[in-house]
Simulated assay, not measured.
Amino acid sequence: MLSFRVKEKAARIRLLALDVDGVLSDGRLYFAEDGQEFKTFDTQDGHGIKMLQGAGIEVAIITGRTTQLVQRRAANLKISHLLQGREDKLVALRELTGELGIALDEVAYVGDDWPDLPAILAAGLGVAVANAHPELRARADHVTTLTGGRGAVREVCDLLLNAQGRYEDALAPYLDTGA
């Protein structure tokens, strides 16, 4: 059950910022002999992102690594705010919010490990995925019940839509059977 404080913070969110490894993916890195890299992404996470975008909430990816896989995933989801190769996630987040005219207290940031901690602490709603490092789970405003790469992002998307009274509107087109 969500606390009133988390619901109140979630109601103000205008930007969802996400780490990749351990958040959008399960955190494992797969390499083939030829050096090709593989990741898995959860389709329900992707759909949740699309629902947020449809509700007018911006989505960004901020990651320390740089890969074409992430660029392709961002393009598939029409995420235009992709910041790769950014080890200092808070600096990247501050730059992005400045460009967008969004205050840090209007940001939800989702992470899983120490490099995400400064952004989680600065964001209006700091979220750790269920399998995040214990230091993040202890300091985040909210911890998901699902793990990174396995529905945690969708859980956060649903939380934001519910807190902002937009969940039923997002669901309605799927309930219309045309009968």
Rank of each mutant, 00 (worst) to 15 (best):
L2Y: 14
L2N: 12
V6I: 14
E8M: 04
R14H: 04
L16E: 06
G22E: 02
L24G: 08
L29G: 00
L29Q: 05
Y30P: 00
F31N: 00
A32T: 12
D34Y: 02
Q36G: 13
E37H: 03
F41Q: 02
T43F: 02
T43C: 07
G46R: 03
I49Q: 06
I49R: 08
L52E: 08
A55T: 08
G56K: 05
T63P: 04
Q68W: 07
L69E: 11
R73M: 08
N76E: 15
L77A: 08
I79P: 11
H81W: 14
L83E: 10
R86C: 14
R86I: 02
E87S: 14
L90S: 09
L90Y: 06
V91C: 00
L93T: 06
L93G: 09
G101V: 11
G101D: 10
I102Y: 12
D105C: 01
D105W: 10
E106G: 03
E106M: 02
V110K: 07
D116C: 07
L121R: 15
G124N: 09
G124T: 11
G126R: 11
V129P: 07
A130G: 05
A130M: 06
A130R: 15
R137I: 13
A138F: 01
A138C: 03
H142Q: 06
V143K: 07
T145I: 08
L146F: 11
G148W: 11
R154H: 07
C157A: 15
A163F: 06
Q164A: 01
G165I: 02
E168L: 15
L171A: 13
P173G: 09
L175E: 12
G178H: 09
A179E: 13
